[in-house]
Design a binder for these strands. Structure first.
Lengths: 335, 335
DNA sequence: CTGAAAGCGCTTACAG
DNA sequence: CTGAAAGCGCTTACAG
C-alpha cells in the first residue's frame, strides 16, 4: 500500500485507521485519512469480500425487467440495499425455471450473501438444487408453492385480492361475471380466481353465471387481454375481473374495438395498480399491490435469513382502488 | 482445496483442469471434472476477480427503475451481459447528479470493469470526478453534453426525432402547434423541441404559431402532461408534440377531461413508444426509440472501451410510428 | 504433463 | 498504540 509508505506506518495501521479503529491514535488517523483523500485511495471491496467471506451483495433475479410491475419491486429492493450499503447483482431476463436456476448459479459463483427471486417459477422439483446452493433466498410472488429450509416467501394475498374484486363488483349488483386469467402463472392465477369465485358463490351467485377465459401461454398479457375481450361472448356478463392490469388494459382496448362501452356495458377490474392505471380510459378500478413494499419486505426477510434469525413467510394485503372502469349494472353484452 | 486431495493431485492441477487447460492429461481432467461435479464444487468468482484484476462485472446506474422505458434499456444491457458471461451490478434509483456520482463511486469500490449510466444528469463540472474514477463509462441518453477521455455516449437522435414528429404533423396540414416539454431533461428536451420547431419553420409555419408549455420540475411526467393539457389554452392549436410518451399519455387524459377530442380536435404525438402506447385511447402516434438496442449498443461500446479499442460516440435513429392520436386538421381548441 | 511458490488487496489474531 | 505474519481462494510464471 503506497499510502502506508508515505505515512510511514504499516499496512496494518492504514487498514485500521481507515476503518476508524479507535486503537489508532487520533493524529495518525487524521494523517492517514488526509493522505487517502489526497491520493484518491478507494478500498478494494473485492479483496475485502474475499477476506471476510461476505460480499455485502445480494442477487436479484427477475423474469422480465421490461414489466413496470417488477421495476417498482426492484426499486424497493434497491432502496434498502442502498441504505444497508449492500450492492445489487441483477439478472433481468430469467423468464422460466431453467433460466432462474441458471441465474442463481451465477450469483452463487459470485458468492452473493443472499438471493431474491421475483416472479419465481421454481417448484418442488427444484428444492434440492436450491438447498445445494445453500444461499438464503426469498421469493417474491412465487408462482408455485414449496418448502425449502434456506428460503422464505413474500407474497401478496392473492385470494384476498380476488375476494376484494368480487365484493366491489357485488356491491354494484352485477349478476353475471367473468374471470380473465393468465395461464403462465399457475399458483397466483388460481388463488385470485378462487378468491373471486368463492366470494361470488358465498353471495348467492350461481356457478353457471361465472365464466372464465384464458389465452395461449405464448402471448403477452396485454395482447391476451385484448384477444379475450374481442372474442368473449357470454350473454349477460356485465363484470370482468382480470388477473392483472396488463390484461385489463388490453381488455379495455378490446372492448372498445367492439364498441362495448366500459363501464356502461361491462365493468372491468384489474390487479396490481400500475402507474398507468390511473390514466387509462376509463381509469382502471383495480386491486392494488404494495409494490415497493414487497421489495422492501423481501429485503428485510432476507436480512433475517442471512443473520440466521427465525423468520416466517410473509403475506401482504392488497387493497381495492375504485376508479371509473366499474359501475352499477345496467345491462351486459347482448341484452 | 478438498478436491485436490481426493483426486490426489495439486491445487494447481485442479485449477488448470477446471479451466480446461490442455496441458493437463485427459484422464486427469475427466477425473477432476467428475469429482467437482460430485462434490458440488463451484469456483469462487471473488477470488478469481482479485487475482485477475478483473471482475467481469459491469455497473449500471439508472435514474428510476420504475420507469418502463429504462426497464427495457436495462433488459437490453442484461441480455448482452448474460451472453458475455458478465454480471450486472445495479443502482436503480439515482435520480440526480449527486446520487449518480455516489453510485459510480460504490461501483468503483467493487471494481467493476465498466459503468453504464442511463439518463445521466452529469455535466462538465463532473468531468474531473469521472476521470479520477478511471473506469470506462458509457452514458445512454445523457441529459447534458460534455467530453471525458474515459467515457462515450450512446444517444437517440433527439433532433431527428423532433423533426420526424413535425413532418408527420405537417403532412396532416396542421397550422398551429404546441410542444409539451420536460424541464428535468435539459439537453434532450432542447434537442427535441429544436428539431420540431426548425422543421416547422422550414415549412413556412410562423413562429407565433408555435407554442410551448412546461411543468414544474417536481411533478411526474404523466401528471405534468395531464396538467399541461388541462390548462393549455392557445386558440387554434390543433397539434401537440410531447417530450415523451408519459407526458403524451397524461395529456390524452387531460384533454379527455376537458372534453377535447383526440385526434378530432387536437392531434398528439409522443416520444419513446412504450409498450403501453399501442393500447392507450386513442392509440398513440409516437416517435419510437429502439430501447433494447440502446442498451445493447452501450454494452458493445463499453466493451471496446474496456479493451482499449477506439470507439466513437453513437447516435441511434428514431422512427415514426403512426397510430390514431393524430389526424388531419379539422379545427383546433376553440374555433 | 505436473507442482511449489508467489501474489492479487485486504483483515485480524497475536505479540509487543 | 503499532506491526509482522497468516490467510481468504484463486491463477500463473517458473522450474522440472
Amino acid at each position: 500500500m503506497d499510502i502506508a509508505r508515505r505515512a510511514d506506518v504499516s499496512h496494518t495501521t492504514v487498514s485500521r485507521a481507515l476503518q476508524g479503529n479507535l486503537r489508532i491514535s487520533s493524529p495518525v488517523r487524521m494523517r492517514i485519512a488526509a493522505l487517502a483523500q489526497e491520493m484518491g485511495y478507494v478500498p478494494n471491496a473485492i479483496a475485502r469480500s474475499l477476506q471476510q467471506q461476505q460480499t455485502r451483495t445480494i442477487g436479484v433475479v427477475v423474469s422480465d425487467m421490461a414489466d413496470p410491475f417488477w421495476g417498482e419491486v426492484v426499486k424497493g429492493i434497491d432502496i434498502v440495499c442502498d441504505s444497508n450499503n449492500q450492492s445489487l447483482l441483477l439478472h433481468a431476463a430469467a423468464h422460466n425455471a431453467t433460466h432462474q436456476l441458471g441465474a442463481m448459479m451465477r450469483l452463487y459463483q459470485r458468492r452473493v450473501d443472499g438471493i431474491i427471486v421475483v416472479d419465481s417459477q421454481l417448484g418442488p422439483e427444484d428444492a434440492k438444487n436450491l438447498e445445494a446452493l445453500d444461499t438464503p433466498t426469498v421469493f417474491i410472488n412465487s408462482q408455485r408453492v414449496f418448502e425449502s429450509a434456506t428460503s422464505r416467501t413474500v407474497n401478496i394475498d392473492n385470494y384476498a385480492g380476488g375476494a376484494l374484486a368480487a365484493h366491489h363488483l357485488l356491491s354494484l349488483s352485477h349478476q353475471k361475471y367473468a374471470y380473465f386469467g393468465s395461464p403462465k402463472r399457475p399458483d397466483s392465477n388460481r388463488q385470485r380466481s378462487i378468491g373471486f369465485v368463492d366470494t361470488l358463490l358465498a353471495h348467492g351467485i350461481h356457478t353457471s353465471w361465472i365464466h372464465r377465459a384464458e389465452f395461449p401461454t405464448d402471448v403477452a398479457d396485454i395482447d391476451g387481454g385484448y384477444a379475450m375481450a374481442t372474442t368473449f361472448d357470454e350473454p349477460g356478463v356485465s363484470a370482468v375481473f382480470c388477473y392483472n392490469d396488463a390484461i385489463a388494459l388490453g381488455a379495455l382496448a378490446g372492448f372498445r374495438a367492439r364498441g362495448i362501452a366500459v363501464p356502461h356495458k361491462i365493468s372491468v377490474v384489474g390487479f396490481d395498480d400500475l402507474a398507468i392505471a390511473r390514466y387509462s380510459w376509463p381509469p382502471l378500478s383495480t386491486v392494488a399491490q404494495p409494490k415497493e413494499l414487497l421489495g422492501q419486505t423481501a429485503m428485510h426477510t432476507l436480512g433475517a435469513l442471512i443473520d440466521g434469525l427465525a423468520v416466517a413467510d410473509v403475506i401482504l394485503a392488497p387493497t381495492m382502488v375504485v376508479r371509473d372502469s366499474t359501475s352499477a349494472r345496467l345491462k351486459g353484452i347482448r341484452s
